[in-house]
């Protein structure tokens, strides 16, 4: 990391900014902050930060509006800072295109890890490599093959499609709805039981232990994500 990554923190609580600043700076980020929706959108457009930390409850409106408006022209990683009990809001933000979320109150170390993942994921997406490598898997999108430790996995077309969609978005939390829409089509966005069955089958084939998954991780009540490492 040669140049310092720039972080825009959108939060109207001074106390949060107060401890985030030294922590972010210690991790080599350059932090700027704003407290309103309107200003956040403007700043993202003008400053083009590398990553955005977004609180949903802002003084002049809903933080989700920031995602909605920014996603029209930018794929800057957005990490949502949200209270644990507001599940529906989190899912909505993810559906709108947020990359990840962190529950308040949060551990700063965890936040830094999520930020790193999101940044790396963005670079990977930009690379557009035909072969994806995640969690010891090698996924060849062109030949429709998945290889684990040199052995080709026997996957049905749907399983492969599901795995490659997750892998393409490695590190990012994908909601049930997003996965269903991408793999099964928008008509099936409510059929989460399909997803559960296929994820189960997929885990049997790719995980060392299906009951303790390391590659496809469950985000309870929200969706799934493929870990990057």
């Amino acid at each position: 990391m040669t140049a310092k990554s720039r972080v825009l923190v959108v939060d109207d609580e001074v106390a949060i900014l107060r401890f985030l600043k030294p922590a972010l700076e210690a991790n080599g980020y350059e932090m700027s902050s704003t407290a309103t929706v309107a200003d956040a959108v403007k700043r993202i457009a003008a400053e083009a930060p590398d990553i955005v930390l977004l609180d949903l409850g802002l003084a002049d409106g809903d933080g989700k509006d920031v995602i909605r408006r920014v996603r029209e022209w930018s794929d800057v990683p957005v990490i949502v800072l949200s209270a644990r009990e507001r599940e529906a809001e989190k899912i909505e933000s993810l559906d709108l295109g947020a990359d990840d979320y962190v529950n308040k109150p949060f551990n700063v170390g965890e936040l830094m890890a999520r930020m790193r993942t999101a940044l790396r994921h963005r670079m990977q997406r930009n690379a557009e490599t035909p072969v994806l490598r995640v969690g010891g898997l090698e996924i060849d999108a062109v030949r429709h093959r998945a290889i684990r430790s040199g052995v080709e996995l026997k996957l049905t077309p749907k399983e492969f499609e599901l795995l490659s969609f997750l892998a393409k978005n490695a590190g990012r939390v994908l909601t049930h709805r997003q996965i269903l829409a991408a793999v099964w089509g928008v008509a099936h966005t409510a059929d989460t039981q399909y997803l559960r069955v296929y994820i189960g089958q997929l885990r049997q084939k790719i995980e060392d232990r299906a009951d303790d998954p390391q590659i496809i991780l469950t985000e309870p009540g929200v969706g799934y994500r493929i870990s990057e490492s």
């Binding site: 600043k21 922590a23 109150p105 949060f106």
Partner: peptide, 28 residues
């Protein structure tokens, strides 16, 4: 939650990156 967030955030910052934070910021 708000004060708790601050406390947890500040404490974990100190724990994880205490060596990288300067004295003034630490005190703060």
């Amino acid at each position: 939650r708000t004060p708790l967030s601050s406390i947890l955030g500040a404490a974990t910052s100190l724990l994880s990156y205490g060596d990288k934070i300067d004295a003034v910021a630490k005190t703060d």
